[in-house]
């Protein structure tokens, strides 16, 4: 009991710097910083690992992940997974744009790996109601190769998509209900 309390205290200490930017309730209020509530823990472990091993250099995450043990990565990922999922914006969104986004999602089968509700599975992240500008930056970076995925899946599936389509996809996912 004492041990697990100590472990919990250690974990909340490690989580404290995360939630400053990523949000205490799973929802980020900071531009270009993703919401991490209800994120798939396997995905989070992989991303933290890539930061820690300098396989994805992105300030300040490369520094934040430095020195974390494998157990830390798993504990942090598990703790973030039980935070509430990000909420959709109060703005319902432009029906015409949502329609275009839905068409793209179906045409490109985003809903196969990311699941029809975009909650993700295993190493495939939740993208539902993620911050729109973060989604767009991520999609652009995967397409251009500026960000390497853990595997080649996103680099492959984004090849045929235009930048305008990435904008519409981000809008749709950020307004998902």
């Amino acid at each position: 009991m004492l041990h697990s309390l100590a472990a919990d205290a250690g974990l909340s200490q490690k989580l404290a710097p995360c939630i400053v930017c990523h949000g205490t309730d799973g929802q980020s209020q900071t531009e270009n910083v993703p919401s991490l509530g209800a994120q798939q823990p396997q995905y989070t472990v992989i991303q933290l690992f890539l930061f820690r091993e300098k396989m994805n250099i992105a300030d300040p995450m490369t520094d934040m992940a430095k020195g974390l043990s494998d157990d830390d990565l798993q504990a942090i990922a598990a703790a973030l997974a039980v935070l509430p999922a990000p909420r959709p914006p109060t703005d319902l969104g432009d029906p015409a744009r949502l329609d275009r986004g839905r068409t793209l999602v179906e045409q490109n089968h985003c809903n196969v790996c990311h699941r029809p509700d975009f909650s993700g599975q295993n190493n495939v992240p939740r993208v539902a109601d993620q911050r729109e500008e973060y989604l767009l930056k991520t999609l652009r970076d995967y397409k251009s190769g500026a960000r390497h995925g853990y595997d080649a899946t996103m680099a492959e599936v984004l090849q045929p998509l235009s930048d305008v389509q990435l904008v519409e996809l981000s809008y749709y996912l950020a307004h998902h209900r």
């Binding site: 319902l92 969104g93 029906p95 015409a96 949502l98 329609d99 275009r100 839905r102 068409t103 999602v105 179906e106 045409q107 490109n108 089968h109 809903n111 029809p116 509700d117 975009f118 492959e156 599936v157 090849q159 045929p160 307004h175 998902h176 209900r177």
Partner: peptide, 22 residues
């Protein structure tokens, strides 16, 4: 394929031909 969003006023756009890999 997704939980119904607020129904858009316009009819769904026809799905264009997918790129070869898709």
């Amino acid at each position: 394929l997704t939980a119904p969003a607020p129904t858009p006023a316009t009819a769904p756009a026809p799905v264009p031909a997918a790129p070869p890999w898709a």
